[in-house]
């Protein structure tokens, strides 16, 4: 980091936040504060939906995941376009027609207040914790690599996002997300182009030969984490639940210039999300090729952690692992060069034999990386051994020119701020509309008081997320654990909404107790089965719908719906 990088980083990060704060400083209407400017067009809505979904994890960890395991992760997004079509056709018209502020307000109109409260509390619990991770995840990586203080990094990003989100509400969130996405696109394309200029000819073919380009796997093995089927069906239910029932997304498209703008914003995402994710995972697969030709490729990408152990009591063991890795890496590079020669000669038999040797050499390097991680765990059982999160940032800091380094760090912070702002905005809205108003029904008509309450709740959740990030000692795989928790809760939440939309004879008590029973079933299955976590979305949803219908048959006329869909 040199002064130019700091100017670019702080200029973009604080400039966009200040612009959003200044432009929306007079937001005093509840509708504008909670739903955004009523003239918002589909392009802004589409970018806002995209910015809320993609946090720093998307841009920092996904390339690392592709480096390590290939691009199969992209299959997780296969259900997304289909889910967005269903949200456009079914969910959005009903939300718009009823003029609700939150998805859970609809549950209150359709069922009863206890079902509304159940939906709102499930959202607040899950998203409140998740918002802590949204600022913790980039802070831990960037502070480790750049030597910044972790606490200060968390507090700085937390305060910046609280200032503009509390000031302008949804209007400020949409406005800043548009510019943050411009920074993100600009930075990622710049990094990709620079990477392409540093690659040898045949890089894509080499990534494929090393098994990194398995984009689609039609296997029906349920134990496999990423397959076409788990992505299509599990991903469909996860995306339906996320876009249709999670207030942090519902709030992005529920306002704006009308139903048409919301629908086109969602269709914009349906068309661009998979190509965008493909671009990010391809960046990771090509980073893998790039690092094959770097003599200094580390055995463990979190260099700060590795250095601590090199200088520790077991330093000799770690130094030995460094040497062993360097030798194997050099041997692998020779095999790669032999494969490139065979490829250039056009001799397919020689090329096939060279490929086998190259893959064997890669397996040897992978084995020594495994040894290194085991050594770290032996030295410190709480050591964080997942170093794939550090692959892309290592490339950024070692290969990009000054100024561009600042731009890429701005990408990481912009993505953290944009997804965090969407979450805070939704948490504040749900707390105000679904909780506070229930306790103070007479205050519902006092607009100024409602806006004040929404601002206080938004600030509270911002401080809660900061406190959570500062105090929680995050486990190594907590981020993935939170994705699993989301899958455990999302399915049941979606089930409640599907019953609301499509089973008009089911009443509030039936769906309320069915949801609790379905949730208990999913949690029990999670602890007793070993299946890909995306499937829990489908199981939870199916169980909730089936139990609701069965309970309604038992309860009969004692449990009538408050209102009907038709």
């Amino acid at each position: 980091m040199n002064p130019l990088d700091w100017v670019v980083l702080l200029g973009t990060m604080l400039g966009i936040a200040a612009y959003g704060t200044w432009r929306t400083r007079h937001t005093d209407h509840l509708d504008t504060y909670l739903k955004g400017d009523s003239a918002t067009k589909w392009g802004t809505i589409g970018l806002s939906v995209m910015a809320t979904q993609a946090s720093t994890i998307t841009y920092l960890s996904l390339p690392g995941q592709a480096y390590e395991n290939g691009i199969a992760f992209i299959q997780n997004y296969f259900g997304l376009p289909l889910a967005l079509i269903i949200v456009c056709a079914v969910f959005l018209p009903i939300y718009r027609k009823l003029g609700v502020y939150t998805a859970y307000e609809y549950l209150g109109k359709r069922f009863d207040s206890k079902t509304r409260l159940l939906g709102a509390c499930l959202f607040l619990l899950q998203r409140g914790v998740q918002s802590g991770v949204t600022i913790y995840a980039p802070a831990i990586i960037l502070s480790s690599v750049l030597g910044w203080q972790l606490d200060l990094t968390i507090i700085f990003t937390g305060v910046v996002v609280i200032v503009y989100t509390v000031t302008g509400g949804s209007a400020a969130v949409s406005l800043t997300q548009k510019w943050q996405m411009a920074v993100i696109f600009g930075g990622m394309v710049t990094a990709f182009v620079i990477l392409l200029t540093k690659l040898p000819p045949g890089a894509t073919e080499m990534a494929g030969a090393m098994g990194k380009l398995q984009a689609v796997d039609f296997s029906i093995d349920p134990d496999k984490r990423y397959t076409f089927w788990s992505g299509l069906f599990g991903g469909l239910f996860l995306s339906l639940s996320y876009f249709g029932t999670d207030q942090s997304q519902v709030q992005r498209y529920i306002g704006g210039g009308g139903l048409r703008e919301g629908r086109l914003g969602l269709m914009f995402n349906a068309m661009l999300k998979i190509p965008m994710q493909f671009f990010i995972v391809m960046l990771g697969a090509l980073l893998f090729v790039f690092f094959q030709f770097q003599p200094e490729t580390p055995v463990f990408f979190n260099r700060a952690e590795w250095q601590r152990h090199l200088e520790g009591a077991d330093g000799a063991k770690f130094s030995e692992l460094d040497k062993k890795h360097a030798e194997l890496h050099r041997a692998k590079r020779e095999k790669i060069e032999a494969w490139m020669l065979a490829r250039a000669s056009g001799d397919s038999r020689a090329k096939s034999a060279a490929r086998e040797e190259m893959v064997t050499a890669q397996a040897a390097v992978d084995a020594v990386r495994g040894e290194a991680k085991n050594a770290l765990l032996q030295a410190n059982p709480r050591a964080k051994v997942k170093d794939s999160d550090y692959v892309f940032i290592t490339f950024i800091l070692s290969q990009l020119p000054h100024g561009v380094i600042g731009l890429l760090l701005a990408v990481m912070f912009a993505s953290a701020l944009s997804s965090k702002a969407g979450e805070l905005n939704a948490l504040g809205t749900t707390s105000t509309i679904d909780l506070w108003r229930s306790l103070r029904p007479l205050a519902a008509h006092d607009e100024a008081r409602n806006v004040r309450a929404a601002k206080w709740f938004t600030a509270f959740w911002g401080l809660f997320a900061m406190g959570f990030a500062l105090s929680a000692s995050f486990a190594e795989n907590l981020i993935e654990a939170l994705n699993i928790i989301a899958s455990i809760f999302y399915g049941v939440m979606l089930g409640i909404f599907l019953v609301a939309f499509f089973f008009k004879r089911v009443g509030g008590s039936a769906v309320f107790f069915a949801a609790i029973a379905a949730q208990a079933l999913v949690i029990a299955m999670y602890f007793s089965l070993n299946i890909g976590y995306l499937w829990y979305n489908l199981i939870g949803c199916g169980a909730c719908v089936a139990f609701s219908l069965a309970l309604q048959a038992v309860l009969g006329s004692r449990d009538q719906p408050v209102e009907r869909n038709s």
Partner: peptide, 13 residues
């Protein structure tokens, strides 16, 4: 109330 690419590219392996 005015769209899915499925990569099977894989067949690089």
């Amino acid at each position: 109330g005015p769209v899915f690419g499925v990569l099977a590219f894989t067949r690089f392996s």
